[in-house]
Write a protein that binds this DNA or RNA. Structure first.
Lengths: 332, 332
DNA sequence: CTGAAAGCGCTTACAG
DNA sequence: CTGAAAGCGCTTACAG
């Protein structure tokens, strides 16, 4: 605790109200008075107290961003996008990771409500709508990802995996593949299910009966062990569609270990295009999710919704797109 | 803004003070009164307002964590460690990324001071001691990484690269290498300089005259272009020590592109052991920096320092260690 | 263009 | 074991 506005006011020979107005530029104050006030502020190295301000105004300049695990390479760009959008408009963000922990999730929600955030972006499936209803009850806007539909105080962002998946399947078919497998994410994860269903449906539509179709988790080693199981069967796939890049990287690792050539013997397709996808050798072909835009869109969705009288949410859609990477060595 | 403590008090037939005491467990309150209060809290879905609390207590439960860029894979574990340590003790953290931007850095510092944080962990070289002095002036404790020495309100964490580097050099010498190059980080980055000096000194000590020694930046493509320049010379190195894993991954990528075999033709050593190091093919041999411990130590350093009368800081040391990874394919 | 005063929603000595 | 009251440091109608 340093100085207070009162001290600044006294030294500048004005009232606290005037200091407040100068600092917040909330009213025209004579140039001379401004100068005096700012001079004292500089001398004293005065900073106003944001807690007092928030209490006095009764509205906070805070938004929450909830993710599951910061080490998951899906999130950095989402965070950056959200934060940038919030900062641009003068808002601050509280970043929370659930770590997939129930107790922690509870305490995050409490903390967010106590902090009187205006809105919360829930970018992980580790919190569902029911859990987040505490936020809604408190009058806080929420935006979800891949959980519909919108409603009062609820907006959604839906990532359209369809398009990227179709492109990927065309790509694989064009390469002459006839046997495709699917390693999906966790069976209890909504996004993972959506992706799996889209993959299976898309493959069937092209008369490729996907087999096997495995549920995995989002850790790299899970992709690897799924592949090991797959390779011990007789009817081996020639292409593997993975529910995320991490799964794909694990799959590639296991394939290499088993001596299978990629893409000569088998093709692997991921989803997300995490920033490390291009480092994989051979480079990972994947379906890009516009993660930074997921973040900015999430903020904008909240911001817009909260400006509406009825605070009725909306649904936003973001496209995916196939990214084909060739080994630069091969490409020359 | 939902209900207030006053409303809860009225409904429960007690005074606001009692409600406060029940909720904060700051005094013994009769079981019956507690029950009544908590019942009303539940009914009303009451949450206390943290801003009012912070203003009233006059001390915040906030710590700042400053990094440069969230997409840099060095940071996630640091963040996780810091956050976990803070949460464990009931503190919250404000995460800020400078994005290497001066104006943004300024505004981060202001925000941190206005938020009345108790301490700030500055985990990026993009803020130096002079810049951070604003925090110290405001009575806020600071912990730096690889910037010494400690002082009033200043603690430091020093990562001892020496040990890992010596192990790495022994390893390389043991493999029969005689010509080593160094691709260091940016020449204006203190940590990068420390690492470079340690590498050069260590190599000389083993009678390996490092050549060339190049300054790069921490982006992957920089490592790649450094290698390209290197390969066009006559006296090619057989081992390349890189100032970070990202540089090393870029270097490996350029080597592959040029048709050089790793490690048959040339060995590459990174620093950090980012979580993706093991995905590189061939797997990246690197010097591990205990990043999660950097985070927890940073918090503990602040916490301890702030409990001292004189708030005199201390220096903490963290060891590094060589991690040799063999391609699993080769290992069988 | 500026000030006096009330109020934001808590906490905490002080008193009983 | 509990309450009345002052105070935390701002902001903002209201008034002039």
């Amino acid at each position: 605790m340093g100085h207070t506005m009162r001290e600044v006011a006294k030294r500048a020979g004005v009232s606290p109200a005037t200091v407040s107005r100068v600092l917040n530029k909330t009213r025209y104050i004579s140039v001379e008075t401004q100068r005096r006030v700012l001079e004292v502020v500089r001398q004293l190295k005065y900073f106003k107290n944001v807690h007092a301000r928030r209490l006095a105004t009764g509205r906070s300049d805070l938004f929450g961003l909830v993710i599951s695990e910061i080490a998951n390479p899906y999130f950095p760009e989402v965070i950056r996008g959200f934060q940038a959008a919030a900062w641009d408009r003068g808002f601050d963000v509280i970043l929370c990771n659930t770590q997939y922990d129930q107790a922690r999730t509870k305490s995050i929600l409490r903390k967010l409500i106590e902090s009187d955030v205006r809105g919360v972006a829930v970018m992980t499936s580790s919190i569902d709508k029911a859990t987040a209803s505490e936020l809604i009850d408190a009058g806080i806007g929420v935006v979800f990802c891949n959980v519909g539909p919108a409603g009062k105080l609820v907006s959604t962002i839906s990532i359209d995996y369809q398009r990227g998946i179709e492109q990927a399947i065309e790509h694989i078919v064009g390469l002459g593949h006839r046997r495709a497998a699917v390693i999906a994410g966790p069976g209890d994860n909504r996004t993972a299910i959506t992706i799996k269903d889209a993959l299976v449906a898309g493959l069937k539509k092209r008369n490729l009966n996907p087999f096997p179709v495995i549920n995995s988790n989002y850790r790299v080693d899970a992709g690897a062990s799924a592949v090991r199981a797959m390779l011990s069967t007789t009817d081996k796939p020639t292409a593997i569609f993975c529910g995320s890049d991490l799964i794909a990287l694990g799959a590639m690792s296991a394939l290499e270990e088993a001596g299978a050539g990629i893409p000569e013997d088998i093709s692997v397709i991921g989803i997300d295009d995490i920033s490390f996808a291009f480092l994989a050798r051979p480079p990972l072909t994947t379906i890009r999710v516009p993660r930074e835009r997921v973040g900015t869109t999430a903020f904008e969705a909240l911001d817009r919704m909260l400006k509406l009288k009825r605070r009725k949410g909306a649904d936003y859609y973001l496209e995916t797109e196939l990214v084909v990477r060739r080994s630069t060595a091969t490409a020359r």
